[in-house]
Design a protein around this nucleic acid. Sequence first.
DNA 1: TCTGTTTGTCAATACTTGCGCACACATGTT
DNA 2: AACATGTGTGCGCAAGTATTGACAAACAGA
Lengths: 120, 120
Amino acid sequence: MAPSDSDAIFSALADPTRRAILSLIGEHEELTAGEIAAHFDSLGRTAVSSHLRILRLAGLVAERRDGRFRHYSVTPTPADAVVAFLTSVYQNSLEQLASAVQGAATPEDVSGGRIEERSA
Amino acid sequence: MAPSDSDAIFSALADPTRRAILSLIGEHEELTAGEIAAHFDSLGRTAVSSHLRILRLAGLVAERRDGRFRHYSVTPTPADAVVAFLTSVYQNSLEQLASAVQGAATPEDVSGGRIEERSA
DNA sequence: TCTGTTTGTCAATACTTGCGCACACATGTT
DNA sequence: AACATGTGTGCGCAAGTATTGACAAACAGA
């Protein structure tokens, strides 16, 4: 089994703390490592830094260096690998998945909601 | 941080072998544990059984007992938690995600393919 | 019914990986 | 120089994984 990008992404998303960090960054435009660490009293700066490193290596966050600060932001198109996997597995129930994503994204732009039978 | 369903799902998806098992089941309607184990020469039946247990506890696969066989199938709506998380984080670039899912589902039924600017 | 075989899981054990912490270092500011 | 921001390193602890051996359940044949 060749290690692909999916490994890094799914491994990074496996940790609840990293998902919380990712959500936290997503709520704001950018956050410094210190600001992120401030939101997790039970975690030290070292731990947060390690998580950020993993998220960065997985391509889930981007780092912008500004003086002695490092601003972290969410990478625009990182979920492609996740979606690719989901689509390959859930071709059966892809209709629900598509509608769920669509509903959260553009609730009024759902036009052709009909899904044809899967090819597999 | 309260342990939710997301934990089990993301943890289950973190392992490449489990993702391979999930993909394998997705390619077929149903597969017995033995058939799944046969596809992984480097793994014993015990390991596959453990993985199936984790996938089942995460709600990603369903088990149908038929005599001494156990047929495993992909659960229809398990990706909701994943999609929910992605939508909460990637609201910015969510339309790309939606179109990606749509494209995989119904390549000719993609109507609103326009991508608006992200708020970031 | 009574073996014997197949299917699949459970239990216990070693191995590997990952997390969090304390310390030190590099970088940048004043 | 003194201080602040972040990260790299090494250590201890916990969690997860694969293997071996044994067990429960179901079927086939005599």
